[in-house]
Simulated assay, not measured.
Amino acid sequence: MQLLFGLSFAMFSSPIVPLQARRFGDARGWFMETYSEAAALAAGIEVRFVQDNQSFSAAVGTIRGLHFQRPPRAQAKLVRCVRGSIMDYAVDIRRGSPTYGRHVAAKLTAEGGEQLFVPVGFAHAFVTLEPDVEVAYKVSDVYAPDCDGGIVWNDPTIGIDWPLPETGAVLSDKDRLLPNLVDFDSPFEYDGRPLEPLPTR
């Protein structure tokens, strides 16, 4: 891992970029720089974020996703967990990609300060690992209902092994009714960078 401006990032060519916020602590607590444009650019994140979002999920096993926005209002996201912990997922939905339909996952915790950059062309989701979880994320375009899209969370061709409690998944009615990947006509084009496994720490 390389460190820039308080953020460390993995040096590899995958479009999904994990970042690690560095904390500076003393007797009072700690300070953390959660975003630096210079560090993001050095990590290959060449997008301008225009909005910050935050969600609260009360129950363990709450799934939000798999979501994306279609062009012309497609969104890249920079995701972090500010309370509790989640498993965060990105699924390649770029037409013509050799890794189409594959996914990567990263555990993001409030305690650890991990972040995940999810570019345009990937469906995003997370599941909560404990109660009362808050997730904050930056997006590169505003919410556009006409461009809103998604893939159903339990699509068998994607095959995500969700870490769910015995009570199962907690989902919105909207997310339960999302289509399968096989029925999805992707508007996203492959940019020449296949999805690669995330580095282990």
Rank of each mutant, 00 (worst) to 15 (best):
F5V: 03
V47M: 03
F122W: 12
H124E: 05
L78A: 02
R70A: 14
F9C: 12
L198M: 05
V182E: 11
Q54Y: 09
T200N: 15
D175Q: 05
V170L: 10
I151S: 09
T157Q: 15
L66N: 08
H103N: 12
P145L: 04
G44N: 09
L181G: 04
Y89N: 03
D155E: 14
E46D: 15
H103K: 04
I63Q: 03
R193N: 07
F24K: 02
P131W: 04
G25M: 05
G150K: 13
M11R: 12
L3N: 07
D26L: 01
V142D: 07
S36H: 07
S13G: 13
F68Y: 15
F126P: 04
S36D: 07
N53D: 10
Q115V: 00
G112N: 08
S14Y: 10
W30V: 01
P179R: 07
V17F: 12
A76D: 10
F5L: 02
F117I: 00
L66Y: 08
P15F: 04
W153H: 08
E114V: 00
F184R: 08
V79T: 06
A59N: 11
G6R: 03
V170F: 08
R70Q: 15
E130G: 14
D173L: 15
S13Q: 11
S8P: 06
V170A: 11
K174E: 08
S55E: 09
P15Y: 06
T109K: 04
D88C: 12
V133P: 14
D183K: 11
D132I: 05
Q69T: 13
R80E: 02
F68L: 12
